[in-house]
Design a protein around this nucleic acid. Structure first.
Lengths: 136, 136
DNA sequence: TCGATTGTATTAAGACTTTAACACAATCGC
DNA sequence: GCGATTGTGTTAAAGTCTTAATACAATCGA
């Protein structure tokens, strides 16, 4: 289970967890019966309060995506199926649109974005620095 | 002044405003001396409370990116210069990395992301639906 | 000069997020 | 069976975000 959270973007932590598990289910990376890490374990990994993870799991259970049993643990619910490629593509396109919008504000053309993505995807991918530079 | 906010992603509204103005300055789209819309006007456009816009402007002024004068208005501060292409590229790469991470969770390969972006950028770009589909 | 405009400031309220510290009950492994 | 593990539930506190309703002072335009 790979979950990565950021506290620098304003998105609530429990929502980041929900969305990432959602997407991993959508992609078939998480399948019915697969175990989720115990609440306390994931909380320790992410260095957040167990209540925050519990909140995320509660939302996922309400959505019918996972089932939780006291003492047992939480698993991907039976019956949930990965999304069709078409649906995943729709989600991907939403994210891409967000990227394009942000790129345009930075005054990059579509072609430049495509080129940058190719560099990033194919070439050696080094992680970028965390900080956003200040102007002046 | 084009600002577009979303209430569906958990990102605080005032932060969305700050970041978008930041990026438009970074790109040279907004230059020193350029007027920002009055707080009340922008608030009306975005259908949010004027206090929220004021919060954004206050942060931008603290950062030295804009200057505000009672009765006059707010303008892009003198002396701020657009970021070098290299810096803008660094920011773009951060966003691209975010896209790739999300795409991977959706089980798309780098090549598929590149292809989807090309479609989106070159082909006819229709806006996607707002809602995220539920599983089941 | 005068009225409208504009940024600033304050106070209040409500909703949401996160952390903290527990207690409890069901399950699992030995 | 027993102890550890695990999800659930509660209460409390602190912080943040947004809206609301004013009031004020400086600036601008006619």
């Amino acid at each position: 289970m790979m979950i990565h959270i950021s506290t620098r973007n304003g998105v609530p932590i429990y929502l980041q967890i929900v969305q990432q598990i959602r997407h991993q289910i959508a992609s078939g990376r998480l399948r019915p019966g697969d175990e989720l890490p115990p609440i306390r374990t994931l909380a320790q990994q992410l260095v957040i309060n167990p209540n925050t993870v519990a909140r995320a799991y509660r939302e996922l259970e309400s959505a019918g995506l996972i089932t939780s049993k006291v003492g047992a643990g939480s698993r991907i619910a039976e019956g949930v199926s990965p999304l069709a490629r078409r649906e995943r593509m729709r989600i991907l396109n939403e994210v891409i649109d967000g990227l394009l919008a942000e790129a345009h504000q930075l005054n990059f053309s579509d072609d430049e974005v495509v080129e940058a993505l190719q560099q990033r995807a194919h070439g050696m991918r080094e992680p970028v620095a965390e900080e956003e530079t200040d102007h002046d």
